[in-house]
Simulated assay, not measured.
Amino acid sequence: MAKIFQVSARAGMTRVVEPVARGLLKAGVTPNTVTVAGTVGVLVGALGFGARGHLVTGALIVTVFALTDLLDGTMARMSGGSTRFGAFLDSSMDRVADSAVFGAVAYWLATQGDYPSVAAALLCLAVGGLVSYVKARAEGLGMTCNVGIAERTERLLIVGVGGLLTGLGVDRALPIALWLLAAVSVFTVGQRMVHVHRQARQLEPGGQR
């Protein structure tokens, strides 16, 4: 059910994004430009606002610019497919943006003296990087790894909603979101490890390693 909802939501977003992507391409804007601009926007929202306690503004800015991750991919597809450098740049900028978001959250929580939640934010950052690494490593070895309940978009959405609710006065919403995110991220790593292990057993001589 979660996977069906995820696919439906992304399909809906694609219908909204495609006209924007087409317009930007006609204007001469490249997917790589959108990738960098989106990252800069996330940095402004996270470090310029979120880290200073302006959680509502920060969450809204980060959410808007995080959507460029879908926009640049759509533009690349429309222009004939992603280049090797484009794929490399997109992945690298994602890591920069994620570090800014969770680093800003951890910093703000530290200023509030909520050190258990700081630990949760740092755990989300570390495990989130592992989620991406497992997929990249699997694909580098010639396997697929398109599974998991908490991919990058879902992770940013969870922390964004937590920050937004906390900024609106809902007590403990952000810490709860962080611990939830840490749990689903760990589960996603496990899902991907199992998925890759099954493929590897079929590919390795003798079916085992």
Rank of each mutant, 00 (worst) to 15 (best):
A46G: 08
T39F: 09
C124S: 14
V34T: 05
Y133E: 15
L181F: 07
V40C: 02
I4G: 00
V134G: 12
D114N: 11
R77W: 12
M1N: 12
V105C: 02
A150S: 09
D98C: 14
T153A: 13
G169T: 11
M93R: 01
Q199H: 04
G12A: 14
T39V: 12
A37T: 12
P31M: 09
F5H: 07
D69H: 04
R95N: 08
L109G: 02
A76W: 06
R52N: 02
A97F: 15
A100G: 15
R137T: 14
F187G: 06
G148E: 03
V134R: 13
H54M: 07
S79W: 12
V127K: 02
A104H: 02
V56H: 04
R15H: 07
A106G: 03
V118H: 06
T166P: 01
S79Y: 10
A200G: 10
R22A: 15
L168W: 08
S99Q: 05
T166V: 09
V159P: 00
L70A: 11
A46P: 09
H197M: 14
I176W: 06
V36A: 02
Q199C: 07
A182L: 12
L109V: 10
R15T: 13
E151D: 12
V184Y: 04
A150G: 02
W108C: 03
R52C: 01
G48M: 09
V20L: 15
T57N: 10
Y133W: 15
D72C: 04
G129D: 14
H54Y: 13
A21P: 11
C145D: 13
T14P: 00
T74K: 15
H195T: 05
R95G: 07
G103P: 01
A150D: 10
P205M: 10
M93W: 03
P116V: 03
S132I: 12
R172Y: 11
E18K: 14
A27F: 07
M193T: 15
